[in-house]
Computed example of a mutant assay.
Amino acid sequence: MAVKERVGLVVSDKMEKTIVVAVESRSAHPKYGKIVARTKRYKAHDEENKCHVGDRVRIQETRPLSATKRWIVTDVITTAAQA
């Protein structure tokens, strides 16, 4: 079975060892053809608290870690200071 991975932007880092990542998916509207952007927010585990708001990160699906957390941070692609 393939491992699910997403790339998104950190929108909250206020929790301990947890971040909220917004992943934007863009698709054409079925009838009108206009590109529609949809945003889904995932809670991801950040063991060292190294991610901050504005960072672009890669997250990977894992076993349930809490009531709402099912993703872990695998890679920090860019930091907010670089962007």
Rank of each mutant, 00 (worst) to 15 (best):
K43E: 15
V57I: 15
R26C: 08
A22T: 04
R58F: 02
I19N: 07
A2G: 12
L9H: 06
A67L: 08
D13G: 14
W71V: 02
T39N: 06
V36L: 14
R58Y: 00
V10C: 14
E47N: 04
E16M: 02
A44P: 14
K14I: 01
E48Q: 07
A83V: 00
A81V: 03
E61H: 06
V21Y: 13
T68G: 01
H52F: 14
L9S: 01
A28L: 14
A37H: 02
K43R: 12
R26H: 08
K50D: 05
Y42M: 04
V76N: 05
N49W: 10
R58I: 02
H29K: 00
V21S: 04
T79E: 13
C51M: 04
T39C: 07
P64S: 12
I59C: 10
K31N: 07
C51E: 00
N49I: 00
K43F: 10
V20E: 12
P30V: 01
A22H: 01
K17M: 13
Q60A: 13
N49A: 08
E24S: 07
C51G: 02
K17G: 05
W71S: 02
R58L: 14
A67C: 01
R41Y: 12
V76F: 08
V36M: 09
P30F: 09
E47P: 14
R63D: 04
S25R: 08
G33S: 10
E16K: 01
A22F: 06
I77E: 10
V36Q: 09
D55Y: 13
M15A: 14
E24N: 14
A28K: 15
L9N: 10
G8A: 04
V20S: 11
V57R: 08
I35Q: 14
L9C: 01
S12R: 10
E47M: 08
V76A: 01
V10W: 12
T39S: 11
K34Y: 07
E24L: 00
V73F: 12
K40H: 09
A22G: 04
S27L: 01
A44Q: 11
V7D: 03
H29N: 15
P64I: 02
P30D: 07
E48A: 03
E24H: 04
V23F: 03
N49P: 03
H45V: 09
S66T: 15
I35A: 09
